[in-house]
Design a protein around this nucleic acid. Structure first.
Length: 125
RNA sequence: CCAGAAAGACGGAUGGCCGCUCUUUUGCGCUUUGGCGUAAAGGGGAGGAAAGUCCGGGCUUCACGGGAAUACGGUGCCGGGUAACGCCCGGGCGGAGCGAUCCGACGGACAGUGCAACAGAAAACAAACCGCCGAUCGCCUAGCAAUAGGAUCAGGUUAGGGCGAAACGGUGCGGUAAGAGCGCACCGCGGACCUGGCAACAGGGACGGCAUGGCAAACCCCACCGGAAGCAAGACCAAAUAGGGGCUGCGCAUAAGCCUGUUCCCGGCUUGUGGCCCGGGUUGGUUGCUCGAGGUGUCUGGCAACAGGCAUCCCAGAUGAAUGGCUAUCGUUCCGUCCUUCGGGGCGGGAUACAGAACCCGGCUUACAGUCUUUCUGGAUAU
RNA sequence: GCUGCCGUAGCUCAGCGGUAGAGCACUCCCUUGGUAAGGGAGAGGUCCCGGGUUCAAGUCCCGGCGGCAGCA
């Protein structure tokens, strides 16, 4: 833990529909209980992420907002520290994301990163 | 104290760590002095329904209007409020409740057209199935005959029966061959006119023997209102791409087409040619974008909705979409259990709603754990 | 955010205010050595939900719920 307690680089956000489609069509995907992770190389050094929470996850706008905020909090906290840079990540919310303990979501996100072999090299234990 | 009615308010609190967005000030950097980037500090940051998108406006565009008729859609007791409304307030009428109160698409069926299955004789200028009554010019049976029974109709009748959702006033008395508003009394109904009220309507009522059955959430009639689309409206900038237009001068014709449902009238535009120059869609960005029929307090007018004066405040502006994530303690309330000085307290467990601004307002409708305040009604107890 | 349309049998759809229907599918019987086809009989409905108008509502009116499509 030498570089982490300095300022974490804040990850960029994916905002265009075309970005999401590119990740969905060309990237890799892993499904866990509380979220789905999609990722693809973006050809730069920066790390970007986006969120997708559809009406399928929950018909209530309040619950969708809650899912999106919890995912965003996890993404900002974990991705710059644990995930490899130079990638675009898309986190897709599911119905369980609203009620699961926060630690479980963290575990699921790390699990997805591991299965896609996108953990940072120095973080491997 | 119990049960209920109405109006209104609220709809978790306080910390810790980590974040988002807008804004003000200051510092630093860049700058074409318009600003842009960055850091720190201060301040703001979801709702009563933000929801459904059911009405009404503001605003914007549709190349610019004015008038009339008609179509289509909406509203529908009366008066007031309002920018406007299908909303609100007050009143009337009808209905529910012991009551406080609540509910009501509540104009017109003598302007016209239409509808009513099944049953029933008949479903709308009434009609005659059973029945009741009458008659016998003509018929049959019994009888000397009067007459009785049947049959029939040149017939009367709607009291009673039966059908139906509904059968052309109700009850009683008289009357009659039997009956019938045929006559009378009471009730209901219509109603010239009078009184009160701005009005809806209410009270009285000469007179009328009863006319005017139901359905307009069937077509419709009457009165009033409405141009259409919507911030994904619209404006600007940049890039790349395909292919078209715009402005203006001159001229011609009175022809054709167009001017936002249709038709007509008034008024206007386009066509032909010369010159000059750009415009449109797509993607991204900027803008529209939040100071407003604004909030709060108070005074005045009004029964009230509401209006006006004064003072004071600035109160979300996101855009793959901020207004939060995690955590600790507490509150509220329910259940179980234990203790109790009957006020309550301890422990364990559960519940803590409906729901997320997307241009902005005024309403309506629908969803909602729980809590509080005020006024009123009915009942019980005590004095 | 805005604008339209739809909801009837297991499925696809009809249905002038008057007893809810058609085709396919399903069950039983006939036919056949057996099956398919064919013929006959039968079962199957909260007409999305709640109010209202009407004597009577799947149909008319109002309010909900659900689904589908379109608009940069």
């Amino acid at each position: 833990m030498n570089a982490a307690h300095d300022k974490k680089p804040t990850p960029g956000r994916l905002k265009r529909r075309s970005d999401f489609l590119r990740v969905q069509e060309t990237g890799r995907k892993w499904v866990s209980q509380s979220l789905i992770l999609q990722a693809v190389e973006n050809g730069t050094d920066s790390l970007n992420f986006g969120l997708t929470v559809s009406k399928k996850a929950s018909p209530s706008a309040v619950i969708r907002n809650r899912i999106r905020r919890r995912l965003r909090a996890q993404a900002i906290a974990l991705l710059p520290v644990k995930a490899r840079a130079g990638m675009d990540y898309v986190l897709v919310g599911r119905r369980e994301t609203a009620d699961k303990p926060f630690a479980d979501i963290e575990k699921d996100l790390l699990w997805c990163l591991k299965r896609l072999d996108l953990l940072k090299k120095e973080e491997k234990s």
